[in-house]
Design a binder for these strands. Structure first.
Length: 678
DNA sequence: ATACCGTCTTTTTTT
DNA sequence: AAGACGGTAT
C-alpha cells in the first residue's frame, strides 16, 4: 500500500502504529476515519486475520461508511470474518450466542426508550406512588444512567444519595423501582439498550472462559469517536483488549456531545493514565473548512476548560467571513435563510444538496418547514419523526413482537389498549397482579377473568372474546411454518388491523400508505436476507432506530437536521439557526449547570456548537431572532447566545447585526468571488 | 372505571 | 404532531 500518496505524515504515523495502545486525537475534518480505515486495511495487508479485528462505532451510519471504505481498499473477500459495528450491535451479537447465560431465551427483543418509560410508569402506578414525586421519565433517566455506570439496584442509594439530588428516601424508592424494572425485563424476556452493554459485561465476569474466548479472537480492538464512550463501553473495550493490549482509539475531545447518554469525556482525556505505554498521535491539519471557519470555531472551543492540548489549522485561505444575522422573529429568520439559499443557488453556483440547516432541537425546524415550501426550496428533514415511529407502524410492530416473543408483557398490555373494550390501566394492572401472584400467564387469567376484582360479567365476556380471537390466534400463527412476510400479512388480517387500528386512528389514507410501505419493507428484507427470520427483522429495526431507511437520498435538496445528527457530515454551506440563550445553550443545560448536577453542561453545549460550525466547508451562516411567541401568546424577548460573544468579530460579517458590535459593516456581496462555489 | 373530546402545551440531543 | 390535562358521558 502506498500510504504516502493518500496520507499526510501524521496520518501515516497513525496507520503504521499497529501494536500496543494508541490514541489518535483528531480534530474535525482531519481525516480520522481515513486513518482508521487505512489502518484496518494495513493490518490485513500485513497478514492479520480479519477475524482478529474488532472495530466499534457509535452510529450505524459510521459503521456502514467505514465498512464501505475498507471494502473499497481491499475488496469484499479480504475482510471476511471482521467484526465492525456499533457497540450495541456487537454486544447483541455476543449475547445472542449466550442467551441462556444472561437469563434470556430465543425471541428476546429490545425495548426502546418509550417502551422502558411505559414499564416504569406501570411500576410507579402499581407501587401506588405519587406520580408527581416519582415521574417515570426522570426515574428512567436515573436508572439508565446507573446501568451505564454498571451500578446495580441495591447500590443505587449508596452511589447517588451523596449527590444530594434528592433525599435518601427518594433513592431508596428509586432503587426498588429499578429492581422491579429489571425483574419485568427478565420476565418479558427483553433487553433495553443499555442492557446490551451491561449484560455483556456481566456475561464476561460470570464466565471468564467466554471472555477469554473473545479476547483470543479480538487481538486488535479499534474504537471510533472514543470521546463518546460511557463507563460500560469503556469496560467492554478494555476487557477485550486486555491480553494483547492492542487498543487503537480515535476521537476528538472537542466533539464530545453525548454526555447526556453517559459518555464520559474523561475516558479520552485520561487514556494515557489507563495505558501508560500509549502512543499519542495528533491529527491537526484540517482538510474540510476555510481558515475563517477554523479560526472562529477554534476561538469558540478555547473557552472550554476541559480540553486536551491540540490545535487545528489549514492550508486553505480565509474564505468568506462568518455571517451573523439577527431577525425580528423566527419566521423572519426562516425567511432570511430561504432568501440566502435561493441567492446561493441562483447566483453562486451552489445546489440545494450543498446546503444544510442545523438546529439545536428538532422543534427549531418548525418555521423552516413552514417557509421553505413557500420559497420553493426542496428540503429533507433528517432525524425527526422516523418512519418506524409512526403510530400505525408502532402498533403493528407491537403485534409482531408478540408473535416472536410471547412473554412480552408490554406488547400484550398495548394490545389490551386497542382490543379490550372497557379495560384500562387500572384493571390491567389488577390482571397483571393476579397473574403474578398466582404465577400464571396473563392469557390464562383471561380464561376466567371474573376472578380478578373489578371485572364484571360484561367486561369478562369482552376479555374472553379478545383472548380467543387475538391471543389464541397469535399463538396459532406462531406455530405455523411459512415465510415471515406471509405470516405478517396473515396476522394483519387475523386482527383486522385496518378496521381495528387504522380506522380508529384517523387519517386513514395516509396511514394505509405507510403500513403498505412497511409490509413492503418486510418483504424486501426477507428477499435480500435469505434465511432470515422475523426475529432478525425486528432486532435489526430496533438497533437501527428506523433511521437509515430513508437516508439513501441523492435528491437535490437542502438537509435540515439537529447538530447531533450532523456529526460526521460536511456541507459546503451551513446555516445554524436559533443561536440563542436557552436554545443554544439549551435551557435544560443551563438548569443542570445552575443546579450543580452537571457542572460541564455548558461546555458540552459549546462543543455542540463547535460540531455544528465545523460541518461547514466554505460558508457558515449563523442567526438568531429578537423575539418569539412565548407561553400565553405573549411575545418574549430573546437574548443572543452567550457563545456569539466569544467569536472574533474580525472574521465575521456583522452587517445585519448591531448587537454585538455596532461599527462593523461588511457587505455580503463585497467580494462575490469568495462566495462562489468553485 | 373508562372513554372520549376539546384544549393546551411542549418538544435535547441517540443506540 | 403528539402528549397532557380536565371535563363530561357511559
Amino acid at each position: 500500500m502506498d500510504l504516502a500518496r493518500f496520507l499526510n505524515t501524521e496520518q501515516q504515523k497513525a496507520v503504521r502504529a499497529l501494536e500496543g495502545p494508541v490514541l489518535v486525537l483528531a480534530g474535525a475534518g482531519s481525516g480520522k476515519t481515513r486513518a482508521l480505515t487505512y489502518r484496518t486495511a494495513r493490518l490485513i495487508d500485513n497478514g492479520v486475520d480479519p477475524a482478529n479485528i474488532l472495530t466499534l462505532t457509535f452510529t450505524n451510519k459510521a459503521a456502514d461508511d467505514m465498512k464501505g471504505k475498507i471494502v473499497k481498499l481491499l475488496g469484499k473477500e479480504r475482510i471476511k470474518g471482521m467484526w465492525l459495528g456499533t457497540f450495541h450491535s456487537i454486544c447483541l451479537r455476543i449475547l445472542r450466542d449466550n442467551l441462556a447465560r444472561v437469563n434470556r431465551s430465543e425471541g428476546c427483543l429490545i425495548y426502546d426508550t418509550t417502551d422502558s418509560v411505559d414499564i416504569i410508569e406501570d411500576i410507579i402506578l402499581e407501587f401506588g406512588l405519587d406520580d408527581l414525586e416519582y415521574e417515570a421519565k426522570i426515574a428512567y433517566n436515573i436508572i439508565q444512567k446507573a446501568k451505564m455506570e454498571l451500578i446495580a439496584p441495591e447500590f443505587l442509594i449508596k452511589e447517588y444519595a451523596r449527590e444530594n439530588k434528592g433525599s435518601q428516601h427518594y433513592y431508596q424508592v428509586l432503587s426498588r423501582i429499578y429492581q422491579e424494572y429489571e425483574r419485568v425485563l427478565l420476565n418479558n424476556n427483553s433487553f433495553d439498550f443499555n442492557d446490551l452493554i451491561k449484560k455483556t459485561i456481566e456475561l464476561f465476569s460470570k464466565y471468564p472462559e467466554i471472555l477469554r474466548e473473545y479476547q483470543n479472537r479480538f487481538k486488535y480492538v479499534q474504537v471510533d469517536e472514543y470521546q463518546d464512550v460511557n463507563h460500560a463501553q469503556y469496560q467492554i473495550t478494555s476487557l477485550l483488549s486486555e491480553p494483547e493490549g492492542n487498543i487503537f482509539v480515535v476521537g476528538d475531545d472537542w466533539q464530545g456531545i453525548y454526555g447526556f447518554r453517559g459518555a464520559d469525556i474523561k475516558n479520552i482525556l485520561e487514556f494515557e493514565k489507563d495505558y501508560p505505554r500509549a502512543e499519542i498521535i495528533k491529527l491537526e491539519q484540517n482538510y474540510r473548512s476555510t481558515n475563517n471557519i477554523i479560526s472562529v470555531s477554534n476561538q469558540l472551543i478555547s473557552n472550554n476548560k476541559q480540553n486536551k492540548e491540540k490545535t487545528a489549522w489549514t492550508k486553505e485561505g480565509d474564505g468568506a467571513p462568518i455571517f451573523l444575522t439577527r431577525a425580528k422573529n423566527p419566521q423572519v429568520e426562516a425567511a432570511y435563510v430561504a432568501r440566502r439559499i435561493n441567492d446561493l443557488v441562483n447566483h453562486y453556483n451552489y445546489s440545494y444538496k450543498d446546503i444544510a440547516v442545523l438546529c439545536r432541537t428538532n422543534f427549531q425546524s418548525h418555521y423552516i418547514q413552514q417557509v421553505f415550501p413557500r420559497s420553493h426550496i426542496p428540503y429533507q428533514l433528517i432525524g425527526g419523526v422516523s418512519f418506524f415511529d409512526r403510530q400505525e407502524i408502532r402498533y403493528f410492530i407491537n403485534y409482531l413482537r408478540l408473535l416472536v416473543n410471547p412473554e412480552d408483557g408490554l406488547a400484550l398490555k398495548r394490545l389490551f389498549r386497542i382490543e379490550a373494550d372497557g379495560v384500562g390501566d387500572v384493571l390491567l394492572s389488577e390482571i397483571n397482579r393476579y397473574a403474578r401472584e398466582h404465577k400464571i400467564q396473563v392469557a390464562d387469567v383471561l380464561a376466567d377473568p371474573t376472578r380478578v376484582k373489578g371485572i364484571g360479567e360484561k367486561k369478562a365476556a369482552n376479555l374472553i372474546e379478545f383472548k380467543l380471537r387475538v391471543l389464541d390466534g397469535i399463538r396459532g400463527l406462531r406455530k405455523m411454518k411459512m415465510p415471515f412476510p406471509r405470516k405478517a400479512l396473515q396476522l394483519y388480517e387475523l386482527i383486522d388491523f385496518e378496521n381495528n387500528v387504522i380506522n380508529e386512528l384517523g387519517n386513514t389514507a395516509e396511514r394505509l400508505k405507510y403500513i403498505n410501505f412497511f409490509m413492503e419493507d418486510i418483504h424486501n428484507y426477507h428477499k435480500y436476507n435469505p434465511g432470515s427470520t422475523l426475529y432478525d427483522y425486528l432486532l435489526i429495526n430496533e438497533l437501527l432506530g428506523g433511521q437509515d431507511e430513508l437516508e439513501e437520498d441523492n435528491t437535490d435538496s437542502v438537509k435540515v437536521m439537529t447538530a447531533h445528527s450532523a456529526k460526521g457530515l460536511e456541507f459546503p454551506v451551513v446555516f445554524i439557526i436559533a443561536v440563542e440563550e436557552d436554545v443554544f445553550p439549551h435551557q435544560k443545560s443551563l438548569e443542570e449547570a445552575a443546579a450543580g448536577s452537571n457542572p460541564y453542561a455548558v461546555e458540552e453545549e459549546r462543543r455542540l456548537l463547535y460540531v455544528a460550525m465545523t460541518r461547514a466547508e466554505k460558508i457558515l451562516f449563523m442567526s438568531f431572532s429578537q423575539r418569539k411567541s412565548g407561553n400565553n401568546g405573549e411575545e418574549k424577548e430573546v437574548k443572543p447566545s452567550r457563545f456569539l460573544y466569544e467569536l472574533p468579530v474580525e472574521r465575521m460579517d456583522l452587517s445585519s447585526v448591531d448587537i454585538l458590535r455596532k461599527s462593523r459593516r461588511l457587505q455580503f456581496k463585497k467580494d462575490p468571488t469568495i462566495l462562489k462555489k468553485n
